[in-house]
Design a protein around this nucleic acid. Sequence first.
DNA 1: GGTGTTTTGCTAGCCAGGCTAGCGATTCAC
DNA 2: GTGAATCGCTAGCCTGGCTAGCAAAACACC
Lengths: 179, 179
Amino acid sequence: MPRMDPTSPEPGGYWYEPDIGDDTIVGLLAAVRTFRRADAGMRRRLGAEMDMNGTDLHALQLLIAAQARGDAVTPRALSAHLAISTASTTKLLHRLTASGHLTRAPHPTDRRSLVVVPTAHAHQEVRERLAGMHARMAEVAGGVPVEARAAVVDFLRAMAALLDAEVPPAPLAPRTPRA
Amino acid sequence: MPRMDPTSPEPGGYWYEPDIGDDTIVGLLAAVRTFRRADAGMRRRLGAEMDMNGTDLHALQLLIAAQARGDAVTPRALSAHLAISTASTTKLLHRLTASGHLTRAPHPTDRRSLVVVPTAHAHQEVRERLAGMHARMAEVAGGVPVEARAAVVDFLRAMAALLDAEVPPAPLAPRTPRA
DNA sequence: GGTGTTTTGCTAGCCAGGCTAGCGATTCAC
DNA sequence: GTGAATCGCTAGCCTGGCTAGCAAAACACC
């Protein structure tokens, strides 16, 4: 049975960028890549080893957060938050209702819509599953020097904004049109 | 046609953690989540809008980096680096050879194996596709105060290590065994 | 030097989770 | 009141993971 090596080492050298001019910037970007890879791998493993994938888990987190805030969440809002289509969201709701993690309640004012509510079971499970990881993440975050935290937050937010804006360009050669 | 909102706002509040004791830590973790979500969304869009998905692109980066270092890369090594199975790697190689991004050359010493080599086309394309984004990322990175950069790098690395180590536990209720 | 075991890349076929297209029901604008 | 917009949904497709199992080559060992 061909199996993969779960702990692949660092990719090693970098690729292009002739000379950005600053080693610390290169190091920063390398760290970002390392993190992205670890994150992607974790999500995949999460999907493989548990009976819930990353998107579903993320949805539950959002629902629980919203509930704590007293906000009602509609499927449409959920799809927007998760950045997936409404059809995919419907499937997601099916999965999570089937597994007993949430229920659909009628929307108080709009009879087309509905309100998605996490069950007690969902609360418990998310707590169990994420509490440990989250505590560890908080610990890591606590290791960041106080005076540097704002910089880290700014950096991550700016990166996120950049990624959000990215991709669309695609100003490339005539590509095989995939059809 | 149901379409999603590509620029969903911040998830808002958080969920559990009674009182971590420090708002800046919560902010940090929120920023991490924002980034993770942006990254995942970017990868998905990348797969949707281009004719290459994130894994393939990652593979090309690795190959190009290895080539620059003078290292030969076998499919097996690639599968280990990408943390996917050898079967998936074979499919990946099919995709990328079909699209003219790489070629399979005989391995110099092991006749079972082979060496995967990126084409000039791959070089050009990766450069075109990533140079812009990468330059922007470098710009963002450059915006981080010099004295805070080491802290950012440490933080991201620690987070990555944490995610790498995460998931396996799964000490939960008897779960439906998915079979 | 033959022979069993490993390793390598591969094919076949499965499955999850995205997606688009389009539908009935309801709400909104006017 | 009526047409347009919006809601969640179903039907059905496609990508990209996965496992199982294969022939060929390399290796271990006598």
